[in-house]
Design a protein around this nucleic acid. Structure first.
Length: 536
RNA sequence: GCCCCGUUAGUCUAGCGGUCAGGACACGGCCCUCUCAAGGCUGGGACAGGAGUUCAAUUCUCCUACGGGGCACCA
């Protein structure tokens, strides 16, 4: 059954939250939204969901624009390009949400709740103790209108909750799954407007989707359980809900929801480590979707235009696809090889120079280079994605490879703590600059030294190898800054997984030492050979 | 714990009652070749398990197992 398309123009949207690095999942959902819009001659809207004031940042928002543009997604309306349905940043629409909340209050589909966070915590704790589903107990549901108005007028802090039916079931129509039946007893009275007067996702998303005339909501599967809330909101407003399409979640190798701990999730990582945007987009298209040729075999390589030309969202397969870097690399190679020699050179050099990074790298490498030819060797750590640690992996254990007699040697766990601390510090930075990077590294090394007695230099060395992949590099803080946050974080997380698994660490070293051993033997045999031949 | 979704090889997928279960990545072998890649050929490898419906189930239904997601004044 094809997806229902209303007579009026198709309008779809993605609504990323600017709370971190631009995520592959955003690109994934954006890709299918954009493709769906194009295939129906519709519009693709980018809306910024920054209602979480604590976590949203402008840097993150800008990074989302940059990364989505890099990968080739084009939105017709958005905060940065305008449009007839603006503003497209939810923080600028507070008044709209408040008014709509008043509407719900006046038609009794929502109510004020004066419960304190402490009370809610207590209730939840009790419910957990009794092994019940933790949910709002409806304490303020029965407040009289007068009482509620009075307390609100008196300025008592409160939220506004949706009055959900407590019995019966709600059927969520999903274009890929048919009707998903969810018992209303599973859903509590969702907060719509927070104490700070800002809406929650649920309210903002419904109001905006309606006001922006969104016809199809193509979003991740994790939303499916909260769709009944949205459906009841549409009903409370007297609006017609859009068509819902819940896409499968991208997965880690262990099948859990894709996460930065187990995968590079930042689009910036892929850009910085040299993946071509068209290959990335193609690869994302392969996640849950497939196209086939006349013979019925799968087509692996196709463009966004190809995808649009015969898109059928109902062909999305629902098993969560594992994000497999191996196949991405292969696909990227395919794209690279399809380029003309001139284009390869052009694109490669353009990539080396992106953001003017070659100037920075040149400066850093200058002092240790004797000729142009040796530039590439020294510059490698600045352009690669994840380094091959090989024998250098021994440096990742703080002090293990230290030449100092007095060196304190830390175990895997202690070393991992150093790296984990550094990751946390780097993640918390809102600005990526040499002094801030330096402060993070120094702090982390000092506290490591304080706790374990490890030598400062040894801790720094571990970080140098962890970030640069080698024990010799240009000045550490400058290098880390130049490599870039996205790539550095991926490398550090990789180091943590290696330190977390003795086999991984041993493997990295074993492979390298085997080669070394083989080389020694070959040399010994070669030395012995002439003598043997002569003796014949 | 409760609820929802899912399940074809290590991975991405085709399949929509009768197929030698097709393709791709990865892996092995061979060819090409000054090396390494690339390319070509080739090999091994999958319908989670059990009931039922049916002349016939990978395909439809139910149960079990396993995986995932949700259960916030985060999105």
């Amino acid at each position: 059954m094809p997806i229902a398309v209303p007579k009026h123009p198709v309008r779809v949207r993605i609504a990323p939250s600017p709370t971190g690095d631009p995520h592959v999942g955003t690109a994934y959902i954006g890709l299918f939204n954009a493709a769906f819009a194009r295939s129906h001659g519709g519009h693709f809207v980018l809306r910024i969901e920054d209602t979480d004031q604590k976590r949203s940042t402008r840097q993150s928002e800008d990074a989302i624009y940059r990364s989505l543009r890099w990968i080739g997604l084009q939105w017709d309306e958005g905060p940065d390009v305008g449009g007839a349905y603006g503003p497209y940043r939810q923080s600028e629409r507070s008044e709209i949400y408040r008014k709509h909340c008043d509407l719900l209050l006046s038609n009794n589909t929502a109510y004020r709740c004066f419960c304190t966070a402490e009370r809610l915590d207590r209730v939840r704790a009790e419910q957990r103790q009794r092994k019940e589903t933790a949910r709002y107990d409806g304490f303020c549901r029965t407040l009289s209108r007068e009482d509620s108005d009075q307390r609100a007028d008196a300025g008592q802090a409160h939220v506004i909750r949706l009055l959900m039916p407590q019995h019966g079931t709600t059927i969520v129509p999903d274009a890929l799954r048919g009707g998903v039946e969810i018992d209303n007893s599973q859903i509590d009275d969702q907060v719509l407007l927070k104490t700070d007067g800002l809406p929650t996702y649920h309210l903002a998303n419904v109001v905006d989707d309606h006001l922006m005339e969104i016809t199809h909501v193509i979003r991740a599967e994790e939303w499916i359980n909260s769709t009944p809330k949205h459906l009841h909101l549409y009903a409370a407003f007297g609006w017609t809900p859009p068509v819902f399409v819940h896409m499968p979640l991208l997965r880690n190798a262990d099948k859990s929801k894709i996460s930065k701990r187990k995968n590079p999730t930042s689009l910036e990582f892929y850009q910085r480590s040299g993946i071509m945007p068209e290959a990335m987009l193609n690869f994302l298209s392969l996640m849950g979707y497939s196209r086939k040729d006349a013979a019925g075999n799968d087509i692996e390589q196709f463009s966004f235009a190809d995808l649009v030309s015969d898109l059928d969202l109902t062909r999305i397969s629902l098993g969560g696809p594992v994000f497999d870097l191996e196949k991405l690399k292969w696909l990227n190679g395919m794209y690279l090889r399809a380029l003309s020699p001139g284009q390869v050179a052009e694109r490669t050099f353009a990539w080396y120079q992106e953001d003017g990074r070659h100037a920075t790298v040149g400066q850093l490498v200058q002092e240790r280079v004797t000729d142009f030819g040796s530039f590439a060797h020294h510059a490698l750590p600045f352009y690669a994605g994840v380094p091959e640690y090989g024998l250098n992996a021994r440096y990742l254990l703080v002090g293990a490879a230290s030449k100092k007699k007095t060196a304190v040697k830390l175990n895997r766990q202690q070393s991992a703590t150093l790296f984990e601390d550094l990751i946390a510090r780097f993640e918390a930075l809102t600005e990526w600059s040499i002094p801030l990077v330096e402060a993070c590294v120094r702090d982390v090394c000092h506290s490591c030294g304080d706790q374990t007695g490890a030598n400062l230099g040894d801790a720094m060395m571990a970080i140098r190898v962890g970030t640069c992949g080698r024990p010799a590099s240009p000045p550490l803080f400058e290098s880390i800054t130049a490599i870039g946050r996205a790539v550095v974080l991926v490398r550090l997380r990789q180091v943590c997984t290696m330190l977390g698994d003795p086999r991984l660490l041993a493997e990295a070293i074993a492979t390298a030492s085997q080669e070394l051993e083989a080389a020694k033997q070959a040399l010994a045999q070669a030395d012995a050979a002439p003598t043997a031949a002569q003796s014949k």
